[in-house]
Design a protein around this nucleic acid. Sequence first.
DNA 1: GCCAACGTTGGC
DNA 2: GCCAACGTTGGC
Length: 134
Amino acid sequence: MNYWLVKSDPDTYGWDELVKEKNTAWTGVRNYQARNNLKLMKKGDEIFFYHSGNESSVVALAKVVKEFYQDPTTKEPAWVCVNIAAVKKLNRAVSLQEIKANSALKNLLLVRNGRLSVMPVSEKEFKAIMQMAG
DNA sequence: GCCAACGTTGGC
DNA sequence: GCCAACGTTGGC
């Protein structure tokens, strides 16, 4: 079991949309590092759902339901997507500020590479964030 | 709305 | 293959 974090701008596609759709193709990734992470996702892996912008918080948990395949929104074979499904909203959103303040999370790519939109999360980091979420 | 950080592009 | 210029992301 691996853990991941994906970012989304709630104005474009937020947690509420995912809950409504239940299962969505995570398309539109056009960054190689993020793409490589998509390719490493396995069915059943858990994913933190992060809202960028005003919220800047981890808000919920999703999971991988379909492993990578050609992103249907482009013909370029370089790009892939996966399908993710809503699992549950966190009891409490964990803000970027709190994450930055937690020394256990200082190596989290969310902090170290603010612009990456799909990133791995270690088991320790996953647990730390879950604990903060209550 | 600004700007820093980063990735990508393209000229050489 | 280097690097300057540019565009985009995302926090503040």
